[in-house]
């Protein structure tokens, strides 16, 4: 259900962007989905395939890239990744850490071509 709302947002952003490119169509869209963004890539893709009709993405190939989950420890300055959402540092057990990537849902690139 939730993925449908994400799709609506993607369509809205592409519609907005394409106003700047009259006479062009989108042939490929790349989405960057964080591993812990709360979005299921397969569900998002099938929802987008379904709802892209009569939108700027109608003819676009949809590609989803997964952004890795990366954390940095502010105490021992090491970067690490984990199999689950756990922010404790495996090197020094500190909780003073920050997430570098893996949380966002981004529209990464659009590939355009002349509409005719």
């Amino acid at each position: 259900m939730h993925e449908y709302f994400i799709v609506q947002n993607i369509l809205k952003i592409t519609e907005e962007l394409m106003k700047k490119y009259p006479g062009k169509k989108i042939v490929k869209v790349v989405l960057l989905i964080g591993r812990y963004s709360g979005v299921e890539p397969d569900l998002l893709k099938s929802a987008l395939e379904f709802f892209k009709k009569e939108s700027p993405l109608e003819e676009a190939e949809i590609l989803i890239e997964i952004e890795d989950f990366k954390i940095r420890c502010k105490d021992c300055k090491k970067d690490f990744s984990k199999e689950k959402w756990d922010l404790s540092c495996p090197f020094c057990d500190s909780f003073n850490t920050e997430v570098i990537s893996g949380e966002k849902i981004l529209l990464k690139t659009l590939e355009l071509m002349d509409a005719n």
Binding site: I6, I10, I13, L32, I105, L106, K108, T109, E111, L112
Partner: peptide, 15 residues
């Protein structure tokens, strides 16, 4: 046909 790639990197949740 010429293709061009736009780098967007826009947050989908921006609205």
């Amino acid at each position: 046909p010429k293709r061009e790639t736009l780098n967007i990197l826009e947050d989908i949740m921006k609205y």
